[in-house]
Nucleic acid binder design. Structure first.
Lengths: 246, 246
DNA sequence: TTTTAGTGACGAACGGCGTTCGTGTCAAGT
DNA sequence: ACTTGACACGAACGCCGTTCGTCACTAAAA
């Protein structure tokens, strides 16, 4: 018997109990549930994503979902992996590893930013989906082919992934705050929030916090995009310093 | 933050009765609530930390807490800042900036690891507590005194903080999983979980994922501690490369 | 001493959540 | 035609954060 949850020969993780071959007698299947969930996530945020809301989107009751999805956690994993599927990978070219690694990071950043709240769901579980492995093979393979020892390449891939998801997670939090404040404009939120932070820093006693209170403008100067790029270059340069000479 | 409960140094007013045994009422204040919350967080994890459980710990009902704490979110922030208060900072010495930055990172890592689940609560809100600023002043001041431009120092501090909290967050997730599986031994969990991951990787089709499936042992070789150190050195080396020559 | 005002404590309850139970329903196999 | 069994789904369970209204108590005013 063929488990239909497998695509292209990738087995499902053993701890995810495999379910029956979904026979679409009625119009309800895992695919539809994932899509509905992602739609809600993008339009209304993670806080609005609950089983009742997903069921409502599909014109049914919450109990119906549990025939296709183990629970909310698994649904979030599935949605996350679906988003990772939007990552476009180039042909590997080890001679341009740094350039390709940078492009990869920017691509992941782009995809996670496009589905703002998905990163908040992503960090809640360790990803093991197909598309996660696909991305991993790209980065890992690139480093290996460049001549880096497998063990070190594994470390680099791990830290880079953490950085990408961690940064996106932080971005998600701002997005959630913006939504909670009822704002839809990014600029409006940025000015309001950063203004508050700046005021807080300026009000600090300068005897105890001389540097922080003095350089407030520098502390709030860069936005998320520039911070992401800076951290990325920091990492890439660190990796380059560890690359075997050729 | 103004605490109106005065403890010492205030003499009893003369009109106070001489004869009263005086239980001054129930003793309940913010301090007690924070401590109870942290106790539960450490002993039972974030999932077990809810307002009813905290109230129970203090022999009262959940409604009583809201006189001292705005809600669960604020309580988590307060607990987090309290944990940050355990961070010990040395005297700044810019001539040993790298060493001190490394020691600082290890110290934060130590404190966040000691209260395993607190990082999961930490990333949920942007920290603005006193102890958070204290740590920021240390790192920022260190970089400034080393000669780095304020704007760049701000970026470095931001990325380092993200790394520290992000890594601790990831650790928290493993901790939560371990607890959810009913294990109390770290070794037992590690072998069980990593074993599953390894099996999953090994089962991948080697045509599509040649590197990942080939170097499974290297992918799972290092534990969280080594990964943290490696990423930290990566960052520190990147920062060093950007330090102005002297 | 009596009254008044104010405050913290807290039982009860509201609304929302994830999830399960039991029953209904209908297509496929016999 | 009957049986089977997977899917659909209304209803409900138990848990959560939070609010309301009431009560107990104290400190100041009268």
């Amino acid at each position: 018997m063929v488990d239909r949850t497998e695509k292209d020969g990738v087995p499902a993780p053993p701890w995810r109990r495999s379910r029956k071959p979904a026979l679409p007698r009625r119009q309800l299947n895992q695919e539809l549930i994932i899509e509905a969930g992602l739609r809600i996530l993008d339009a209304e945020g993670l806080d609005a994503l609950n089983m009742r809301r997903v069921a409502q989107e599909l014109d049914t009751g919450p109990a119906s979902l549990y025939a296709h999805v183990a629970g909310k956690d698994e649904l979030l994993e599935l949605i996350y992996d679906r988003v990772l599927g939007e990552i476009r990978l180039p042909e590997r070219d080890a001679s341009r590893w740094k350039e390709q690694l940078r492009a990869y990071a920017m691509e992941v950043h782009r995809v996670l930013s496009a589905h703002a709240d998905v990163a908040r769901a992503a960090l809640a579980n360790i990803p093991t989906g197909e598309n996660s492995v696909r991305a991993g093979e790209f980065v890992f393979g690139l480093l290996i082919e460049t001549g880096m020892a497998p063990r070190e390449a594994s470390l680099v891939m791990d830290r880079l992934s953490l950085y990408l998801v961690g940064d996106a997670y932080e971005g998600s939090l701002h997005y959630a705050r913006m939504r909670a404040a009822g704002m839809s404009d990014r600029r409006e939120y940025f000015e309001s929030f950063v203004g508050q932070i700046a005021g807080y820093y300026r009000a600090l006693p300068s005897e105890r916090f001389p540097h922080v209170s003095k350089y407030v403008d520098d502390l709030i100067a860069d936005d998320g995009e520039e911070r992401f790029r800076y951290g990325l270059e920091l990492l890439l340069d660190g990796v380059e310093a560890r690359m075997p000479r050729r």
